[in-house]
Design a protein around this nucleic acid. Structure first.
Length: 464
RNA sequence: GGUCCCUUCGUCUAUCGGUUAGGACAGCUGGUUUUCAUCCUGCAAAGGGGGGUUCGAUUCCCCCAGGGACCGCCA
Protein backbone atom coordinates (compact mmCIF):
# COMPACT_ATOMS: atom_id res chain seq x y z
CA UNK A 1 0.00 0.00 0.00
CA UNK A 2 1.04 3.53 -0.71
CA UNK A 3 2.05 5.93 2.03
CA UNK A 4 -0.40 6.32 4.87
CA UNK A 5 -2.77 9.23 4.36
CA UNK A 6 -5.35 10.29 6.93
CA UNK A 7 -7.79 13.07 7.07
CA UNK A 8 -9.89 15.04 9.46
CA UNK A 9 -13.19 16.08 7.94
CA UNK A 10 -15.21 18.43 10.10
CA UNK A 11 -18.24 20.35 8.97
CA UNK A 12 -18.01 24.09 9.62
CA UNK A 13 -21.49 24.23 11.10
CA UNK A 14 -20.30 25.03 14.59
CA UNK A 15 -17.21 25.54 16.65
CA UNK A 16 -14.81 22.62 16.71
CA UNK A 17 -15.01 21.03 20.13
CA UNK A 18 -12.51 19.08 22.14
CA UNK A 19 -13.79 15.71 20.92
CA UNK A 20 -13.16 16.71 17.34
CA UNK A 21 -9.73 17.94 18.28
CA UNK A 22 -8.89 14.55 19.74
CA UNK A 23 -10.04 12.80 16.58
CA UNK A 24 -7.84 15.16 14.56
CA UNK A 25 -4.95 14.51 16.95
CA UNK A 26 -5.24 10.75 16.54
CA UNK A 27 -5.45 11.04 12.74
CA UNK A 28 -2.47 13.35 12.64
CA UNK A 29 -0.41 11.26 15.05
CA UNK A 30 -1.14 8.07 13.18
CA UNK A 31 -0.07 9.50 9.84
CA UNK A 32 3.06 11.05 11.31
CA UNK A 33 3.95 7.83 13.07
CA UNK A 34 3.77 6.12 9.69
CA UNK A 35 5.64 8.96 8.00
CA UNK A 36 2.53 9.66 5.99
CA UNK A 37 0.40 12.72 5.40
CA UNK A 38 -2.51 14.30 7.21
CA UNK A 39 -5.18 16.24 5.35
CA UNK A 40 -7.92 18.60 6.32
CA UNK A 41 -11.23 18.52 4.51
CA UNK A 42 -13.95 21.02 5.21
CA UNK A 43 -17.34 19.42 4.67
CA UNK A 44 -19.32 22.50 3.85
CA UNK A 45 -22.10 21.09 1.71
CA UNK A 46 -24.78 22.15 4.16
CA UNK A 47 -24.95 25.65 2.76
CA UNK A 48 -27.49 26.80 5.28
CA UNK A 49 -25.40 26.13 8.32
CA UNK A 50 -21.82 26.27 7.09
CA UNK A 51 -20.00 29.43 8.12
CA UNK A 52 -16.58 30.76 7.18
CA UNK A 53 -15.99 31.83 10.75
CA UNK A 54 -16.33 28.22 11.84
CA UNK A 55 -13.93 27.10 9.17
CA UNK A 56 -11.39 29.63 10.40
CA UNK A 57 -11.97 28.62 13.99
CA UNK A 58 -11.32 24.97 13.11
CA UNK A 59 -8.02 25.76 11.42
CA UNK A 60 -7.00 28.09 14.20
CA UNK A 61 -7.82 25.54 16.88
CA UNK A 62 -5.82 22.79 15.21
CA UNK A 63 -2.89 25.11 14.76
CA UNK A 64 -3.08 26.19 18.39
CA UNK A 65 -2.69 22.65 19.60
CA UNK A 66 0.10 21.95 17.15
CA UNK A 67 -1.62 20.23 14.24
CA UNK A 68 -1.07 21.44 10.72
CA UNK A 69 -2.37 19.68 7.64
CA UNK A 70 -0.31 18.63 4.70
CA UNK A 71 -1.16 19.78 1.22
CA UNK A 72 -4.00 22.00 0.18
CA UNK A 73 -7.05 22.54 2.29
CA UNK A 74 -9.77 20.44 0.70
CA UNK A 75 -13.09 22.20 0.39
CA UNK A 76 -15.84 19.69 -0.20
CA UNK A 77 -18.26 22.09 -1.84
CA UNK A 78 -15.84 22.65 -4.71
CA UNK A 79 -16.08 19.00 -5.63
CA UNK A 80 -19.79 18.38 -5.74
CA UNK A 81 -19.77 17.86 -9.49
CA UNK A 82 -17.52 14.87 -8.97
CA UNK A 83 -19.96 13.51 -6.41
CA UNK A 84 -22.86 13.99 -8.77
CA UNK A 85 -20.95 12.21 -11.54
CA UNK A 86 -20.54 9.20 -9.31
CA UNK A 87 -24.23 9.25 -8.45
CA UNK A 88 -25.08 9.27 -12.16
CA UNK A 89 -22.65 6.43 -12.71
CA UNK A 90 -24.39 4.43 -10.03
CA UNK A 91 -27.75 5.31 -11.56
CA UNK A 92 -26.63 4.26 -15.02
CA UNK A 93 -25.39 0.92 -13.81
CA UNK A 94 -28.53 0.18 -11.89
CA UNK A 95 -27.01 0.58 -8.44
CA UNK A 96 -29.16 3.54 -7.62
CA UNK A 97 -32.65 4.70 -8.49
CA UNK A 98 -34.87 7.72 -8.51
CA UNK A 99 -37.36 7.88 -5.70
CA UNK A 100 -40.55 9.89 -6.05
CA UNK A 101 -41.93 9.38 -2.58
CA UNK A 102 -42.92 12.68 -1.05
CA UNK A 103 -41.53 13.95 2.20
CA UNK A 104 -45.00 13.79 3.67
CA UNK A 105 -45.36 10.18 2.68
CA UNK A 106 -42.06 9.28 4.31
CA UNK A 107 -42.80 11.29 7.44
CA UNK A 108 -46.11 9.55 7.72
CA UNK A 109 -44.50 6.14 7.52
CA UNK A 110 -41.97 7.08 10.15
CA UNK A 111 -44.69 8.29 12.44
CA UNK A 112 -46.68 5.13 12.09
CA UNK A 113 -43.63 2.96 12.63
CA UNK A 114 -42.91 4.83 15.81
CA UNK A 115 -46.47 4.42 17.04
CA UNK A 116 -46.33 0.70 16.49
CA UNK A 117 -42.85 0.65 18.01
CA UNK A 118 -41.50 -0.87 14.86
CA UNK A 119 -38.12 -0.01 13.37
CA UNK A 120 -38.41 2.30 10.40
CA UNK A 121 -36.57 1.76 7.18
CA UNK A 122 -37.61 3.15 3.83
CA UNK A 123 -39.91 0.62 2.18
CA UNK A 124 -38.02 0.65 -1.14
CA UNK A 125 -41.25 1.47 -2.93
CA UNK A 126 -39.50 3.13 -5.87
CA UNK A 127 -36.72 0.59 -6.16
CA UNK A 128 -38.34 -1.27 -9.03
CA UNK A 129 -40.56 1.44 -10.43
CA UNK A 130 -41.51 0.97 -14.08
CA UNK A 131 -41.20 3.84 -16.56
CA UNK A 132 -44.94 4.23 -16.88
CA UNK A 133 -45.47 4.75 -13.16
CA UNK A 134 -43.04 7.64 -12.93
CA UNK A 135 -44.86 10.78 -11.79
CA UNK A 136 -44.05 13.77 -13.98
CA UNK A 137 -44.61 16.55 -11.50
CA UNK A 138 -42.31 15.40 -8.70
CA UNK A 139 -38.61 16.05 -8.48
CA UNK A 140 -37.04 12.78 -7.37
CA UNK A 141 -34.25 12.08 -4.96
CA UNK A 142 -31.70 9.45 -5.88
CA UNK A 143 -31.38 6.48 -3.55
CA UNK A 144 -28.62 3.93 -3.38
CA UNK A 145 -29.69 0.33 -3.92
CA UNK A 146 -28.38 -1.10 -0.72
CA UNK A 147 -27.83 -4.83 -0.37
CA UNK A 148 -30.78 -6.74 0.99
CA UNK A 149 -29.44 -10.26 1.29
CA UNK A 150 -26.75 -11.48 3.61
CA UNK A 151 -24.52 -9.58 5.94
CA UNK A 152 -21.42 -7.43 5.83
CA UNK A 153 -18.35 -7.34 8.00
CA UNK A 154 -16.41 -4.23 8.81
CA UNK A 155 -12.84 -5.05 9.74
CA UNK A 156 -12.32 -2.15 12.07
CA UNK A 157 -8.80 -1.48 13.27
CA UNK A 158 -10.04 -0.44 16.70
CA UNK A 159 -13.34 -2.23 17.14
CA UNK A 160 -12.40 -5.53 15.54
CA UNK A 161 -14.84 -7.30 13.21
CA UNK A 162 -18.30 -5.81 13.24
CA UNK A 163 -21.01 -7.75 11.44
CA UNK A 164 -24.36 -6.39 10.44
CA UNK A 165 -27.32 -7.75 8.44
CA UNK A 166 -27.51 -5.88 5.15
CA UNK A 167 -31.28 -5.57 5.44
CA UNK A 168 -30.83 -3.13 8.32
CA UNK A 169 -29.18 -0.63 5.97
CA UNK A 170 -31.82 1.30 4.13
CA UNK A 171 -31.69 2.60 0.58
CA UNK A 172 -30.09 5.87 1.61
CA UNK A 173 -30.39 9.04 -0.39
CA UNK A 174 -27.29 10.05 -2.32
CA UNK A 175 -28.75 12.98 -4.28
CA UNK A 176 -31.33 15.37 -2.88
CA UNK A 177 -34.24 16.48 -5.02
CA UNK A 178 -32.34 19.64 -5.82
CA UNK A 179 -29.62 17.47 -7.30
CA UNK A 180 -27.02 18.04 -4.57
CA UNK A 181 -25.12 15.12 -3.05
CA UNK A 182 -25.50 13.97 0.54
CA UNK A 183 -22.89 13.14 3.13
CA UNK A 184 -22.33 9.44 2.55
CA UNK A 185 -21.77 9.93 -1.16
CA UNK A 186 -19.60 13.02 -0.88
CA UNK A 187 -17.42 11.70 1.92
CA UNK A 188 -16.82 8.46 0.07
CA UNK A 189 -15.97 10.08 -3.24
CA UNK A 190 -13.70 12.59 -1.54
CA UNK A 191 -11.89 9.99 0.52
CA UNK A 192 -11.26 8.06 -2.66
CA UNK A 193 -10.14 11.06 -4.66
CA UNK A 194 -7.88 12.18 -1.87
CA UNK A 195 -6.32 8.69 -1.80
CA UNK A 196 -7.00 8.21 1.87
CA UNK A 197 -5.57 4.99 3.21
CA UNK A 198 -6.95 5.16 6.75
CA UNK A 199 -10.25 6.60 7.83
CA UNK A 200 -9.97 7.37 11.52
CA UNK A 201 -13.09 8.95 12.92
CA UNK A 202 -15.60 8.92 15.73
CA UNK A 203 -17.62 5.87 16.62
CA UNK A 204 -20.78 7.68 15.59
CA UNK A 205 -19.85 7.04 11.96
CA UNK A 206 -19.67 3.28 12.27
CA UNK A 207 -23.03 2.51 10.67
CA UNK A 208 -22.30 4.98 7.86
CA UNK A 209 -19.26 2.92 7.05
CA UNK A 210 -21.46 0.04 5.90
CA UNK A 211 -23.10 2.39 3.43
CA UNK A 212 -19.83 3.83 2.24
CA UNK A 213 -18.17 0.46 1.78
CA UNK A 214 -20.90 -0.54 -0.66
CA UNK A 215 -20.11 2.48 -2.80
CA UNK A 216 -16.40 1.67 -2.80
CA UNK A 217 -17.14 -1.89 -3.84
CA UNK A 218 -19.50 -1.00 -6.68
CA UNK A 219 -17.15 1.68 -7.99
CA UNK A 220 -14.32 -0.85 -7.78
CA UNK A 221 -12.26 1.47 -5.65
CA UNK A 222 -9.62 0.38 -3.18
CA UNK A 223 -11.09 0.08 0.26
CA UNK A 224 -9.29 2.15 2.90
CA UNK A 225 -8.77 0.86 6.42
CA UNK A 226 -11.29 2.05 8.96
CA UNK A 227 -10.75 2.82 12.62
CA UNK A 228 -13.62 4.07 14.76
CA UNK A 229 -12.55 5.59 18.01
CA UNK A 230 -14.85 5.69 21.03
CA UNK A 231 -16.51 8.99 21.71
CA UNK A 232 -15.74 11.33 24.53
CA UNK A 233 -18.60 11.63 26.95
CA UNK A 234 -19.65 14.43 29.22
CA UNK A 235 -19.71 13.86 32.97
CA UNK A 236 -23.32 12.84 32.46
CA UNK A 237 -22.22 10.13 30.06
CA UNK A 238 -23.59 11.60 26.86
CA UNK A 239 -21.84 12.23 23.57
CA UNK A 240 -20.05 15.56 23.48
CA UNK A 241 -21.92 17.74 21.05
CA UNK A 242 -21.55 21.14 19.54
CA UNK A 243 -24.36 22.34 21.70
CA UNK A 244 -22.50 21.35 24.84
CA UNK A 245 -21.12 24.30 26.68
CA UNK A 246 -17.52 25.03 27.43
CA UNK A 247 -15.79 22.57 25.23
CA UNK A 248 -13.99 24.51 22.52
CA UNK A 249 -10.26 25.03 22.74
CA UNK A 250 -10.80 28.70 23.31
CA UNK A 251 -12.66 27.91 26.50
CA UNK A 252 -9.55 26.19 27.80
CA UNK A 253 -7.16 28.72 26.39
CA UNK A 254 -8.87 31.62 28.08
CA UNK A 255 -8.55 30.10 31.54
CA UNK A 256 -4.86 29.65 30.89
CA UNK A 257 -4.51 26.06 29.74
CA UNK A 258 -1.48 25.66 27.50
CA UNK A 259 -1.70 23.84 24.18
CA UNK A 260 0.88 21.22 25.04
CA UNK A 261 -0.89 20.33 28.25
CA UNK A 262 -4.23 19.91 26.55
CA UNK A 263 -2.59 17.98 23.74
CA UNK A 264 -1.03 15.62 26.25
CA UNK A 265 -4.30 15.22 28.11
CA UNK A 266 -6.23 14.48 24.95
CA UNK A 267 -3.61 12.00 23.83
CA UNK A 268 -4.07 9.98 27.00
CA UNK A 269 -7.86 10.15 26.83
CA UNK A 270 -8.73 6.86 25.23
CA UNK A 271 -5.19 5.92 24.35
CA UNK A 272 -2.32 4.62 26.41
CA UNK A 273 1.22 3.44 26.09
CA UNK A 274 2.23 1.35 29.09
CA UNK A 275 2.25 3.56 32.18
CA UNK A 276 3.61 6.60 30.44
CA UNK A 277 1.68 9.78 31.16
CA UNK A 278 3.80 12.62 29.81
CA UNK A 279 4.56 12.75 26.11
CA UNK A 280 6.39 15.38 24.14
CA UNK A 281 5.06 15.83 20.62
CA UNK A 282 8.01 13.86 19.34
CA UNK A 283 7.39 11.03 21.76
CA UNK A 284 3.71 10.89 20.94
CA UNK A 285 4.46 10.57 17.24
CA UNK A 286 6.99 7.89 17.99
CA UNK A 287 4.70 5.80 20.19
CA UNK A 288 1.23 6.37 18.78
CA UNK A 289 -0.56 3.33 17.47
CA UNK A 290 -4.07 2.10 16.94
CA UNK A 291 -3.61 -0.86 19.28
CA UNK A 292 -3.36 1.47 22.23
CA UNK A 293 -6.81 2.92 21.66
CA UNK A 294 -9.36 1.64 24.15
CA UNK A 295 -12.80 0.48 23.17
CA UNK A 296 -14.90 2.20 25.77
CA UNK A 297 -15.89 5.85 25.79
CA UNK A 298 -14.15 8.14 28.23
CA UNK A 299 -15.26 11.08 30.27
CA UNK A 300 -13.75 14.53 30.29
CA UNK A 301 -12.11 15.30 33.63
CA UNK A 302 -11.21 18.91 34.34
CA UNK A 303 -9.01 18.12 37.32
CA UNK A 304 -6.76 16.04 35.10
CA UNK A 305 -6.53 18.81 32.53
CA UNK A 306 -5.60 21.20 35.30
CA UNK A 307 -2.99 18.96 36.78
CA UNK A 308 -1.50 18.28 33.35
CA UNK A 309 -1.29 22.02 32.84
CA UNK A 310 0.32 22.41 36.24
CA UNK A 311 2.89 19.85 35.26
CA UNK A 312 3.76 21.75 32.11
CA UNK A 313 3.95 25.05 33.96
CA UNK A 314 6.50 23.53 36.30
CA UNK A 315 8.51 21.68 33.73
CA UNK A 316 8.94 24.00 30.77
CA UNK A 317 11.70 26.58 30.73
CA UNK A 318 11.13 30.03 32.14
CA UNK A 319 11.69 31.54 28.73
CA UNK A 320 8.88 29.45 27.32
CA UNK A 321 6.65 30.13 30.30
CA UNK A 322 7.05 33.88 30.19
CA UNK A 323 6.24 33.84 26.50
CA UNK A 324 3.05 31.95 27.22
CA UNK A 325 2.15 34.42 29.92
CA UNK A 326 2.84 37.44 27.74
CA UNK A 327 0.67 36.04 24.98
CA UNK A 328 -2.04 34.96 27.38
CA UNK A 329 -2.30 38.33 29.10
CA UNK A 330 -2.33 40.19 25.82
CA UNK A 331 -5.12 38.02 24.54
CA UNK A 332 -7.34 37.67 27.58
CA UNK A 333 -6.26 40.19 30.21
CA UNK A 334 -4.14 43.24 29.48
CA UNK A 335 -0.78 43.67 27.88
CA UNK A 336 2.07 43.40 30.37
CA UNK A 337 4.20 46.56 30.23
CA UNK A 338 7.62 45.71 28.81
CA UNK A 339 9.43 46.99 31.87
CA UNK A 340 7.52 44.50 34.04
CA UNK A 341 8.27 41.44 31.95
CA UNK A 342 11.72 40.87 33.39
CA UNK A 343 10.46 41.30 36.89
CA UNK A 344 7.77 38.70 36.37
CA UNK A 345 10.22 36.38 34.73
CA UNK A 346 12.51 36.61 37.74
CA UNK A 347 9.55 35.90 39.99
CA UNK A 348 8.44 32.86 38.01
CA UNK A 349 10.46 30.65 40.29
CA UNK A 350 7.94 31.17 43.09
CA UNK A 351 4.97 32.24 41.00
CA UNK A 352 4.74 28.94 39.18
CA UNK A 353 4.69 26.94 42.37
CA UNK A 354 1.18 28.00 43.13
CA UNK A 355 -0.34 27.91 39.70
CA UNK A 356 -2.37 25.40 37.79
CA UNK A 357 -3.11 27.83 34.97
CA UNK A 358 -1.62 30.88 33.32
CA UNK A 359 -4.50 32.79 34.82
CA UNK A 360 -3.32 31.79 38.29
CA UNK A 361 0.11 33.17 37.50
CA UNK A 362 -1.44 36.36 36.19
CA UNK A 363 -3.51 36.75 39.34
CA UNK A 364 -0.53 36.22 41.59
CA UNK A 365 1.60 38.57 39.53
CA UNK A 366 -0.91 41.41 39.51
CA UNK A 367 0.96 43.17 42.31
CA UNK A 368 3.96 43.36 39.98
CA UNK A 369 2.04 44.29 36.86
CA UNK A 370 0.10 47.14 38.41
CA UNK A 371 1.76 50.00 40.24
CA UNK A 372 -1.50 50.75 41.93
CA UNK A 373 -2.54 48.09 44.45
CA UNK A 374 -6.16 47.07 44.14
CA UNK A 375 -7.38 45.93 47.50
CA UNK A 376 -9.71 43.11 48.25
CA UNK A 377 -12.18 44.96 50.45
CA UNK A 378 -12.68 42.11 52.90
CA UNK A 379 -8.96 41.71 53.29
CA UNK A 380 -8.49 45.43 53.73
CA UNK A 381 -10.66 45.24 56.84
CA UNK A 382 -7.97 43.10 58.43
CA UNK A 383 -5.71 46.13 58.50
CA UNK A 384 -6.62 47.48 61.90
CA UNK A 385 -4.63 49.86 64.09
CA UNK A 386 -2.46 47.13 65.45
CA UNK A 387 -1.69 45.93 61.94
CA UNK A 388 -0.86 49.45 60.89
CA UNK A 389 1.51 49.76 63.78
CA UNK A 390 3.27 46.57 62.74
CA UNK A 391 3.48 47.75 59.16
CA UNK A 392 4.84 51.07 60.26
CA UNK A 393 7.53 49.53 62.46
CA UNK A 394 8.46 47.13 59.72
CA UNK A 395 8.73 49.99 57.29
CA UNK A 396 11.02 51.94 59.59
CA UNK A 397 13.35 49.07 60.23
CA UNK A 398 13.50 48.01 56.63
CA UNK A 399 14.27 51.55 55.62
CA UNK A 400 17.75 51.20 57.10
CA UNK A 401 18.47 47.95 55.32
CA UNK A 402 21.29 48.06 52.81
CA UNK A 403 20.57 44.72 51.24
CA UNK A 404 17.16 43.24 50.53
CA UNK A 405 17.06 39.49 50.85
CA UNK A 406 15.60 36.81 52.99
CA UNK A 407 18.60 36.84 55.35
CA UNK A 408 18.20 40.54 56.14
CA UNK A 409 14.40 40.57 56.15
CA UNK A 410 13.79 37.55 58.32
CA UNK A 411 15.27 38.94 61.54
CA UNK A 412 13.10 42.03 61.18
CA UNK A 413 9.96 39.97 60.92
CA UNK A 414 10.95 37.67 63.77
CA UNK A 415 11.61 40.64 65.93
CA UNK A 416 8.18 42.06 65.27
CA UNK A 417 6.58 38.72 66.05
CA UNK A 418 8.30 38.76 69.42
CA UNK A 419 7.61 42.36 70.40
CA UNK A 420 3.96 42.15 69.37
CA UNK A 421 3.50 38.72 70.88
CA UNK A 422 1.99 37.36 67.76
CA UNK A 423 2.78 34.64 65.22
CA UNK A 424 4.01 34.84 61.67
CA UNK A 425 0.53 35.32 60.36
CA UNK A 426 0.10 38.37 62.57
CA UNK A 427 2.98 40.08 60.81
CA UNK A 428 2.98 38.47 57.39
CA UNK A 429 -0.67 38.93 56.63
CA UNK A 430 -0.85 42.71 57.08
CA UNK A 431 2.32 43.11 55.07
CA UNK A 432 0.99 40.94 52.26
CA UNK A 433 -2.28 42.83 52.15
CA UNK A 434 -0.52 46.18 52.14
CA UNK A 435 1.80 45.10 49.38
CA UNK A 436 -0.52 43.08 47.12
CA UNK A 437 -4.05 43.90 48.17
CA UNK A 438 -4.87 40.33 49.11
CA UNK A 439 -4.17 37.98 51.99
CA UNK A 440 -3.41 35.22 49.54
CA UNK A 441 -0.37 35.23 47.38
CA UNK A 442 3.31 34.43 47.18
CA UNK A 443 5.58 34.22 50.21
CA UNK A 444 6.10 37.56 51.90
CA UNK A 445 9.86 37.64 51.34
CA UNK A 446 9.35 36.79 47.69
CA UNK A 447 6.93 39.68 47.38
CA UNK A 448 9.21 42.17 49.07
CA UNK A 449 12.30 41.16 47.17
CA UNK A 450 10.51 41.15 43.84
CA UNK A 451 9.06 44.59 44.53
CA UNK A 452 12.36 46.06 45.61
CA UNK A 453 13.26 48.59 48.22
CA UNK A 454 11.55 51.72 46.93
CA UNK A 455 8.32 50.16 45.81
CA UNK A 456 7.94 48.19 49.03
CA UNK A 457 8.35 51.25 51.20
CA UNK A 458 6.10 53.30 48.96
CA UNK A 459 3.29 50.80 49.30
CA UNK A 460 3.75 50.30 53.03
CA UNK A 461 3.80 54.00 53.78
CA UNK A 462 0.71 54.53 51.74
CA UNK A 463 -1.43 52.35 53.93
CA UNK A 464 -0.30 53.52 57.33
C1' G B 1 -38.56 0.00 19.23
C1' G B 2 -34.46 -2.02 15.76
C1' U B 3 -29.17 -2.54 14.81
C1' C B 4 -24.34 -2.08 16.62
C1' C B 5 -20.74 -0.99 20.46
C1' C B 6 -19.01 -0.72 25.48
C1' U B 7 -18.43 -2.40 31.02
C1' U B 8 -11.09 -2.85 35.98
C1' C B 9 -10.45 2.18 41.92
C1' G B 10 -14.65 8.62 41.76
C1' U B 11 -11.78 9.72 36.80
C1' C B 12 -7.95 8.28 32.79
C1' U B 13 -5.87 3.63 32.37
C1' A B 14 -2.08 -1.17 32.86
C1' U B 15 -2.90 -6.43 32.68
C1' C B 16 -2.75 -9.82 26.40
C1' G B 17 -5.10 -17.52 31.77
C1' G B 18 -1.46 -17.94 37.26
C1' U B 19 -0.01 -10.51 39.90
C1' U B 20 -0.58 -8.99 47.34
C1' A B 21 -4.84 -6.55 40.17
C1' G B 22 0.00 -1.81 38.77
C1' G B 23 0.36 3.58 37.60
C1' A B 24 -1.60 8.63 37.14
C1' C B 25 -5.31 12.51 38.61
C1' A B 26 -8.63 13.63 42.39
C1' G B 27 -9.47 12.35 47.88
C1' C B 28 -7.55 11.53 52.82
C1' U B 29 -3.25 11.06 56.51
C1' G B 30 1.67 12.61 58.19
C1' G B 31 6.29 15.46 57.40
C1' U B 32 9.08 19.87 55.45
C1' U B 33 7.51 25.00 55.04
C1' U B 34 6.90 31.73 58.15
C1' U B 35 0.00 32.27 55.08
C1' C B 36 -1.69 29.62 50.72
C1' A B 37 1.09 26.45 47.87
C1' U B 38 5.25 23.47 46.28
C1' C B 39 7.99 19.15 47.76
C1' C B 40 8.31 14.42 50.29
C1' U B 41 5.72 9.89 53.37
C1' G B 42 1.77 7.00 53.73
C1' C B 43 -3.55 5.45 53.36
C1' A B 44 -7.98 4.35 51.15
C1' A B 45 -10.10 3.03 46.54
C1' A B 46 -11.80 -1.43 41.12
C1' G B 47 -12.71 -6.40 37.69
C1' G B 48 -21.73 -5.07 36.89
C1' G B 49 -24.46 -10.00 37.85
C1' G B 50 -25.11 -15.22 36.52
C1' G B 51 -23.59 -19.43 33.97
C1' G B 52 -19.87 -22.20 31.46
C1' U B 53 -14.49 -23.68 29.41
C1' U B 54 -10.05 -24.61 32.44
C1' C B 55 -5.99 -27.40 37.45
C1' G B 56 -6.71 -22.00 37.45
C1' A B 57 -10.30 -16.74 35.13
C1' U B 58 -10.38 -9.52 35.25
C1' U B 59 -8.47 -12.06 30.89
C1' C B 60 -11.90 -17.05 26.50
C1' C B 61 -17.48 -18.33 25.44
C1' C B 62 -22.86 -17.62 26.50
C1' C B 63 -26.95 -15.13 28.98
C1' C B 64 -28.73 -11.00 31.73
C1' A B 65 -28.31 -6.04 33.51
C1' G B 66 -26.57 -1.15 32.89
C1' G B 67 -24.58 2.59 29.75
C1' G B 68 -23.72 4.58 24.84
C1' A B 69 -23.99 5.40 19.38
C1' C B 70 -26.82 5.23 15.02
C1' C B 71 -31.69 4.89 12.90
C1' G B 72 -32.30 13.11 8.48
C1' C B 73 -33.34 15.29 1.30
C1' C B 74 -27.30 17.21 8.82
C1' A B 75 -22.41 15.95 8.54
Amino acid sequence: MSNVATRFAPSPTGALHIGGVRTALFCWLYSKNKKGTFHLRIEDTDKERSKDEHKDQIIKSLKWIGIEHDGELYIQSTKINDHIDVANDLLKNGHAYKCYCSTEEIEDQKKRAKQKKLPYTYNRKCRELSESDVPKDIKPVVRFKSKIEGSSILKDLVQGDVEIDNITIEDFIILRNDGTPTYNLSATVDDHQMNMTHIIRGDDHKINTFKQIQIYLLMKWNLPYFAHIPLIHTLEGKKLSKRDNASTLDDYSKIGIMPDALRNYLLRLGWSYKDKEIFTIKESIEHFNLEGIGKSPSKLDMSRILSMNEHYIKSISEDELINHIIKYCELYKEKIPVEKVDKIKQSLIFLKNKAKTLEDIYNNAKYIIFDEVSFNQDDLKLIDDRAKKIISEFSNKVNDLKVFNKETLEPVVNNLIKTHETNFKGVGQPLRIALTGSKFGPGIYDIIISLGNDETLKRLNKII
